[in-house]
Amino acid sequence: MHIDSGLRTLYRGSWIKGFLMFSVLCAMGLVTGQLERYSADVLLTWFLIGPATSATLRHSAHALIPLIITGSGYAQRAVIVGAGPTGDAIATRMGASRREGKQLLGFFDDRHAERLASPRLRLLGRIADLADYVRQQGVDVIYIALPMTTQPRIVRLLDDLRDTTVSVYFVPDLFVTDLIQARVDHVGGMPVVAVCETPFTGLNGVLKQSFDFLMAACILILIAPLMLVIAAAVKCSSPGPALFRQYRYGLDGERILVYKFRSMTVCENGETIAQARQNDARVTPLGAFLRKTSLDELPQFINVLQGRMSIVGPRPHAVAHNEMYRKLIKGYMIRHKVKPGITGWAQVNGCRGETETLEKMKQRVDFDLEYLRRWSLALDLRIILRTVRLIRKDPNAY
């Protein structure tokens, strides 16, 4: 049976969320010692049937709502003022989302057709003609997609529309720029637009922190014996402490102390730090194994319990590297809008190891910023699963 890509994505997302909830329930049972009280049959039945049922119902709603809107004649007639990039962007999104229930009639703009953002845009007239067109054609919704620099023209347009019942929305042109977690909020009833914000506000912040705490606590309980063995091996294999401590930038650019098992003969934590490279003479034989298998990162779960780090997030860099790259890469410090992670979106996409060129670091930062834009618990779980698979065959781990 053929299933389109949208439905496959919906089912995959439902299974990921179901597995995430199943993992959280098991983790809570382990932490509280009540796991044996859970009914294995109930949990298994829910895990197998719940996500499939949820995905099927959601897909049915996605498919039926546009048909209901179209069949009932409720589709709203819409026009867009401004045929520039912002107007083109909202028209594209309107056409891609059938659930919006909007019928786009065309555009109003004072420019000639050959100067529009796209030749496919249907020009209905000049902006001065809009009010008459609204009255004659029964337009329901207007989207003003003019640059914010044209405020006088926007004010005149709103005055012309005061004797109509049309709904008017203003689409700021800043929304076509590269924004981080853009959304509309309110301050004392006044709307404000977020252009660069952390995804972990409100309920998202509670979910992220709860997930980190529960997972870190369970993992530390399970790996405590292994950590003791590794600490003893590091201590006995070469001179120096078992744990390596280094200051790095955490949430909002504040310095945090990050723990790792020592894998080198040195413990650099100054203003000049050389990155680890392939066949680095500073790496001990045991340290090479620990770095290859990522076992040197295990003490960072303690950082997670302390609230300094997250399980998934942008990897923290040494303070010396931060001070260098923040001057060279635009938007570098935005990655510190969230807590640093033990693993991250950049690492599971091949950006691990030495960044010997500026372009490699820029690529890593681009993935970090993409993570901020796309964050969800399902994405975190996906990154964790991909990290586990990469541990055995990551060529950049050295």
Rank of each mutant, 00 (worst) to 15 (best):
F289S: 03
T201A: 12
T272L: 09
Y249F: 13
P314Y: 00
Y259R: 14
V319P: 02
E297R: 04
G240K: 02
Q275M: 11
D280K: 01
H321Q: 10
E268A: 15
K208W: 02
T284W: 03
G313M: 03
L207D: 08
I223R: 07
R245T: 11
S294R: 15
D252E: 15
S210T: 15
G287V: 04
S294N: 09
I230C: 03
F213S: 05
C196I: 12
G202Q: 11
Q209C: 13
R255V: 12
A276P: 03
A288I: 08
N279M: 11
C196W: 06
A216I: 01
L295M: 15
A233L: 15
N269V: 08
S237I: 07
G307Q: 06
R248D: 04
L243S: 03
K208I: 01
L305I: 09
R245V: 13
A231I: 06
I223D: 03
Q209E: 09
G205D: 10
G253R: 12
V229P: 02
M309V: 03
A224D: 06
I223L: 13
R245L: 14
V266K: 06
P285M: 08
A281P: 15
L220V: 08
S310V: 04
M264T: 03
L228F: 14
Q300R: 12
L295N: 01
S237M: 07
R255Y: 09
P314H: 02
P316M: 05
L298N: 00
A288V: 08
V319I: 15
M264D: 00
C196K: 14
A224L: 15
A274W: 10
D212Q: 04
L228P: 08
L251C: 08
F261R: 00
N269Y: 05
Q278Y: 12
C196M: 13
P225L: 06
V266N: 05
L286I: 10
S263H: 00
S263C: 06
M227I: 07
L295F: 12
G287C: 05
G253Y: 11
L295Y: 06
I273D: 06
N279T: 07
L243G: 03
R291P: 00
R277W: 14
L305R: 00
R245E: 11
G202M: 12
T198A: 03
Y249A: 10
V319W: 05
Q246Y: 06
D252C: 13
V234N: 00
A318N: 01
M215E: 04
S263W: 01
Q278L: 11
P285Y: 06
A231P: 05
I273M: 09
S238R: 07
V312S: 01
K235C: 10
P241E: 11
C196R: 13
N269P: 05
M324G: 08
G205V: 10
I273S: 03
S238Y: 11
F211Y: 14
L290K: 00
L228H: 13
G287M: 02
L220A: 06
L243N: 05
F289M: 13
N204R: 09
C267D: 09
R262S: 05
T198P: 08
C236E: 11
P241I: 09
L257F: 08
T201Y: 10
T293R: 09
M215S: 12
P239F: 14
K260P: 00
E323S: 11
F244I: 06
A233G: 07
I221S: 13
I221A: 15
L226F: 15
S238N: 12
S294Y: 07
M264Q: 00
Q300T: 07
L226D: 07
A217H: 07
I273Y: 03
A281R: 12
H317I: 04
T265K: 10
M309F: 01
P285K: 11
